[in-house]
Amino acid sequence: MRNTIFFLVSLAVALVIYFGLRAFGIDYLFVAGYVIVQYVVLATAWNILGGYTGYVNFGSAAFFAVGAYSSVTLITIATHIEDWFSESVAAALNTVFPLPIPVLVVIAGIVGGLIGYGMGYLTLRLRGAFFAIATLALAVVLATLVVNWEFVGGSSGAYVIAPAEMIFFKSYKEYLFALMLLMAVGSLVVARAIERSKLGYGFAAIRDDELAAEASGVPTLNLKLVATTLSGAMMAMAGAPFPYFIGFIQPSSAFGLEYAVNSIAMPMIGGTLSWMGPLVGAVLLGTLQQLANVTISSAVNLLIVGLLLIVFVIIAPNGIVGLVQDRLRARRTK
């Protein structure tokens, strides 16, 4: 019941944001907005595993790229249908291909979820640090595979041309923004629902003390697999529309370091204990970066994010949300 209300409220907020931006009539706002909202999804997805269960995933960029390249694969398949199949089969396939983006998002989610599950299954029986190291490894293995896979463009990249015509939306960027905004609402609803559920309590028990969690009857391995699968699926979903958004996709852009860094830094700076933290972190850092990109180089930009991450993990372990909560609590008891 409460979840439904939360869903409706966030949907209303999303609509206000969307129509607010539309009122300006500047396409660039949708481009900048898309990037920020995409980070909301990534940060929330990272936090479901990292913040709730305490397992660090350094491979966010890999999961993001899995989503992006699962779309590239399907889009490229669509362009080959005439060469590969007889006329009648091709005609039948062409009624569904090229697949609409929401379908690409769902497929990316399935692929990302499977990879998340596989990663978890291989490493989660071991000490926590091994999982983190394995996620670093995953990013390099997948990047190497993509670089050597000519079908999706290899190291030189591939052009992805967005359909020109749109219904309702004035531009393709606007459509992609609206889609990503909807995904952000979805991920926040999922994160918040988990927090207040039996699953959320199980995650918290794992984060605090895994042995004690087992002794209390928590099936820790299963729960961790749920978290890695869900988190991986959501990250890949965030990457699915990326080829259409950027138009020309290269391994270096899809596996970009900024995704790995931001999806850790944003929840850490915002606060990892609730759904609000990643949201606050993503909106704050994402907006700052969009503003700074205009004025300073992207390297300086990332340097600031890195420094903020270090400062926050040392000084404010519970992030901005934690700081505010402490403040409020102190005032209440005064």
């Binding site: 309590y201 918290a204 028990a205 605090d208 969690a213």
Partner: peptide, 21 residues
């Protein structure tokens, strides 16, 4: 080995949710 981020009542909820249920 308490669950440090949970309140005492919530500490007890873990075995209730995962064992008693």
């Amino acid at each position: 080995r308490p669950f440090a981020s949970l309140s005492l009542a919530e500490n007890l909820k873990i075995p209730m949710f995962y064992t008693v249920h």
